[in-house]
Amino acid sequence: MNRPTGVDDGSDMRELLCAVGARRDIEAYEQLFRHFAPRVKAYMARTGGNGQQAEELMQETMIAVWNKAERYDPAKGAASTWIFTIARNLRIDAFRRERRPEFDPEDPAFVPDDVAPADAELDMRETSEQLHHAIAALPAEQASLLKLSFFEDQSHSAIAQRLNLPLGTVKSRMRLAFDKLRAALARSGDVS
């Protein structure tokens, strides 16, 4: 759980990613790469890939980061969140051979938020640090369930079976954990 000093609030990573998006800044990209590549590779290895596959999917993810950096909006989330969603989608494509159904904000049937954008859009700018501490403060059994959810490509019923717990217990622990994280973000004033 070592975090390099200087990136505790994720703001450095956010600025680096914006620099790649705005100016194709190769030095900023290299710093991003050195931070995220090992993490993405570990994520791919944990969610089902062997070493070679994990390396390939990591490279694919990081190249997508370079190609799509223009579309990153720092107000919508941390760099780690954005890179996580890219890695996740590539993983689904590679391992599950399924499509990932996603909503389309440009779709005429899409229902936009009717609250004023400034209030409605989560300003996720300041939330990385709160979230980091809130996750660290979770009871061990809730934190480990969250990690299993995100890092093992398994349904909650499969996780319940593996841990020899009733499915209801898994679901309620998950809900408790998520409630605490939401409450921590709400206290930071960013989430209504």
Binding site: R3, Y43, R46, A78, T85, L131, H132, F151, L181
Partner: peptide, 12 residues
């Protein structure tokens, strides 16, 4: 998804 990003960031 921010939780996912945070967990990714803390991978060793």
């Amino acid at each position: 998804e921010a939780v996912g990003g945070e967990l990714l960031d803390t991978m060793e």
